[in-house]
Write a protein that binds this DNA or RNA. Structure first.
Lengths: 150, 150
DNA sequence: GCAGCAATGAAAACCATTGTCGTTATCATG
DNA sequence: CATGATAACGACAATGGTTTTCATTGCTGC
C-alpha cells in the first residue's frame, strides 16, 4: 500500500529513520498541492485505515520539516505543511485561496524574505471593496484546489 | 494618568467607544516600537496599577485592530500587536530580532503582499552558517529594541 | 433618574500543539 | 538468527494563547 520505493530513499538521504508512518504522511502530503494541516493528514490516514496517532503525525511532520523534506507554514492560525520543492527560496502564500508559489529571486533589498503572506492576483480581482490596515482577518485552511502559479 | 487628549479622538474617529481601558492599551502600545503581546500589554497595565483584565486587553486589541488603529501580527507563535502607521502598506517582519518595517511599494508582480517574514540585513550578517529549506525555527518575541528601518 | 446596551472582568471552555511514559519497531552486532 | 541499544510510536495528560460565557458595571440618550 505504501509506495516505499518512492519515499524511502528520500527519508534515508535526509538522514532520518524510515518508518511506515512517515511514508504514509509523505503520501498524504504528495496528494495535495496546497498545504494541509496535521489534523487533516491524520484524518486522511484514518480514512485509509491506518492507526497512526495524531501525535505521531505531528512528530513525523516535525522531523521531516527539520530534514528539509517538508515546509511548515506555522504562521497561519493552524499550522499547515507541504512537500518541499527545491531548496533556497521563498514562498508566496495567498491568505484567501491558500495558494503557495515558490520564488527564487530576491524581492526586497536588505531583507531576505522567507514567507510572504498576501493576496494573489486571482483573489485580488475577485475580491470587492474595502481595503483596510488590518490584514489578519482569518482565512482558514482548505479552500478549493488552486493551481500553483508559475 | 491617561493621555485622553491624545488617544481619545483617535478612538472617536475610528467609531468605537472611548474607554479608559482602551486608552491605557493605546498608551502601552505607543510606548513600544516593536510589536508586543497581549499578555505583555496586560502585565504593563498591572505594573501601572490598573485592574484591567487580560480578557479586556484582548477585546480592546481586537476592536482597535478591526478599526484600523492597530496592526495584529497573529502569524507568530504568540500574537503581537503594534500601533498602525499609515494605511495601505505591507510589513517586513524579522523573525530573528522582531523588527517591523512598513513599506509602501509593491514588491511582487501579481501578488499583493501584506506580511513578509524573513531575516533583516542586520541579523543576516550576524547569522553564521547553515541555510535550510525549513524556515520556521522559533524566534520568540521581545528581543532587544531595534530601530525601525526606513 | 431610568431604560437600553455596550464594555468589563473572572472563570471556564477551546483547541492546536507538546510532553510523558510505557510499548514497539528498527538497526547494527555478535 | 538472537540481542541489545536506540529511536519511534500511541494514548493520554498537560500547556498556553485565545475566546466564550455570564453576571455586573457604567455610559448614552431620553
Amino acid at each position: 500500500m505504501v509506495d516505499m520505493a518512492r519515499w524511502g530513499p528520500m527519508l534515508e538521504t535526509a538522514g532520518i529513520r524510515v518508518t511506515s508512518q512517515r511514508l504514509l504522511v509523505l503520501e498524504v502530503l504528495a496528494a495535495h498541492r496546497l498545504p494541509v494541516s496535521a489534523r487533516r493528514v491524520h484524518a486522511e490516514l484514518q480514512d485509509r485505515g491506518a492507526t497512526t496517532g495524531l501525535t505521531t503525525v505531528y512528530r513525523a511532520l516535525a522531523s521531516m520539516t527539520e530534514a528539509g523534506l517538508v515546509h511548515a507554514f506555522t504562521h497561519m492560525g493552524e499550522g499547515v505543511y507541504r512537500l518541499c520543492g527545491s531548496a533556497s527560496h521563498h514562498h508566496l502564500v495567498c491568505r484567501v485561496c491558500g495558494m503557495v508559489a515558490e520564488r527564487q529571486e530576491d524581492i526586497v533589498d536588505g531583507f531576505r524574505a522567507e514567507e510572504v503572506y498576501g493576496v494573489c492576483a486571482t483573489c485580488e480581482s475577485a475580491e470587492s471593496g474595502s481595503r483596510r490596515c488590518s490584514t489578519t482577518t482569518g482565512a482558514t485552511a482548505d479552500p478549493p484546489e488552486v493551481t500553483e502559479s508559475r
